[in-house]
């Protein structure tokens, strides 16, 4: 109880500082369901007209559901790729005596620190040549490759906490190296895999630059690109529509955060369980 009392000035300060942010979100939410008279911020009527994009597709645009599906596929596929590759590569780097292990570890670190945007022109050319430009698969591969160093590094951290004796016990019990990994080690790093998957999904869901440059038009459009296109469209500029689509776009992120924040915290715990 005393602990709570002592911390109240901090709580108060934080509340005041974050109040504008909260207010903005609340206003954004209200604003998408109401109309306000010109020149005023105070809404005077309830309306669903800003949400008509959900069931009515204007000519020249993709259906919002098609775009959402694209975003979902993009985020899920990159997350799956990152998790599958990282969970194996991380194990190898953590446990096996691979040649040039130090070089790989340093390389992974450098790749993670490397600003991917500087590669964008080269990637653009490569995708164009192999015929994956303006396709979802193309961006998925690129995004997964860019996220992978972080994933591998994280998974290595999780594997490092698994006691070495557990694996040796498994080998003595007659299991192959692969079975040991699959049946004994992988279950120990489940929290890490889950956290990494979620993290990679959120990164994919929020990605803008890569799809914008590598799959800007056509059927591969994702939500972030769709949203940007709304602002760029000078002919029928609609601020309220932009806000509604924006809210629609961040809703899944908020929901995921709300339900799985403890798992995400695992990432920052560096793999320590508990």
């Amino acid at each position: 109880m005393t602990g709570h009392l002592k911390s109240w000035p901090i709580v108060l300060a934080l509340s005041i500082l974050s109040a504008p942010l909260v207010l903005m979100y609340v206003y954004l939410f209200i604003d998408t369901f109401t109309n306000a008279p010109p020149g005023s911020f105070i809404p005077n009527e309830f309306t669903l007209e800003h949400w008509t994009f959900l069931w009515h597709t204007p000519p020249g645009r993709l259906s919002i559901w098609r775009v959402t599906l694209n975003s979902l596929m993009f985020a899920t596929s990159t997350a799956t790729l990152v998790v599958v590759v990282s969970s194996m590569a991380g194990y190898v780097l953590s446990r096996l005596n691979v040649p040039a292990r130090g070089f790989f570890l340093a390389g992974v670190m450098v790749l993670h620190a490397f600003p991917a945007i500087t590669l964008i022109v080269a990637i653009f050319l490569v995708l164009q040549i192999v015929g994956l430009y303006n396709t979802l698969i193309g961006v998925i591969l690129v995004k997964a490759a860019i996220d992978m160093p972080l994933g591998i590094w994280l998974m290595k951290g999780f594997y490092d906490t698994v006691p070495w004796e557990i694996e040796m016990a498994g080998i003595q019990d007659g299991a192959s190296r692969f079975t040991v990994w699959r049946k004994l080690v992988l279950p120990q790093v489940k929290p890490g895999i889950f956290a990494l998957g979620l993290f990679a999904f959120l990164l994919g869901w929020g990605e803008f630059i890569l799809p914008q440059v590598l799959a800007p038009s056509g059927n591969a459009q994702v939500l972030s690109v769709y949203l940007a296109a709304l602002i760029a469209d000078d002919n029928n500029f609609d601020m309220a529509l932009f806000k509604s689509v924006g809210l629609f776009y961040i809703a899944p992120v908020l929901i995921l955060f709300f339900f799985f924040q403890s798992y995400l915290m695992n990432i920052y715990g560096g793999g320590s369980k508990g």
Binding site: P163, E165, I166, M168, A169, G170, I171, Q172, G174, A175, S176, L184, P187, Q188
Partner: peptide, 19 residues
């Protein structure tokens, strides 16, 4: 290889499978 030697080992930390 270890797998074919059929040796039972009790490690100092017991190394039970926690899951």
């Amino acid at each position: 290889p270890s797998q074919e030697r059929n040796v039972g080992v009790v490690f100092q930390s017991y190394a039970l499978y926690p899951h």
